[in-house]
Amino acid sequence: MKELILIAIGSAIVNNVVLSQFLGICPFLGVSKNTKTAAGMGGAVIFVIGIASLVTSLIYKFILANQALMEKGIDLTYLQTIVFILVIAALVQFVEMFLKKNMPPLYESLGVYLPLITTNCAVLGVALTNVTKEYGILESVVNGLATAIGFFIAIVIMAGLREKIEYNDIPKPFQGTAIVLITACLMSIAFMGFSGMI
């Protein structure tokens, strides 16, 4: 239990996926103009990464690194990148269809963002990190969810700041993306303060 909590805090706050690992920069910069859409995007990312880390770790454990196959000398782990990216791409499409049919209210709030996440590097990044760190299934899911929550925290804070930045007088060349990156830099410095926690 203690280990799971450490993994969760580590990936949500200390090694924040956006601010210290630079994964998922595109939606972080693109969909952070107001807090409501940012929260929607964050929710969709939590949903997708949660499912994706469960599915990819199941596939890794029972198909790619299958014990019976390993004993026969067949090691399929080299296929991980190819399998993971295809599974994630298919999974997002599937989740979208499923939500549209069975949970219309949830689809209404997350649907627009789902296609944006398909090849989001954070999803593949989490799946690969789970393998590199040799996490089991439960640890993978916890790590995935925590990473996504870290993304949620970062994008919502950024959106809140950006709403205020709108009213400021910014030097011309820095208007637009540049000032957002400076803000991200300051947020990243702030998040470095958590590094002593673990």
């Binding site: 060349p173 208007q175 470095m192």
Partner: peptide, 21 residues
């Protein structure tokens, strides 16, 4: 700070600003 995570954002921000000019 430049070789750490925040430095990356800072350098990129300046690059974007220079490219705007």
């Amino acid at each position: 700070i430049f070789v750490m995570a925040p430095g990356a954002f800072l350098v990129l921000a300046c690059l974007v600003a220079v490219m705007n000019i």
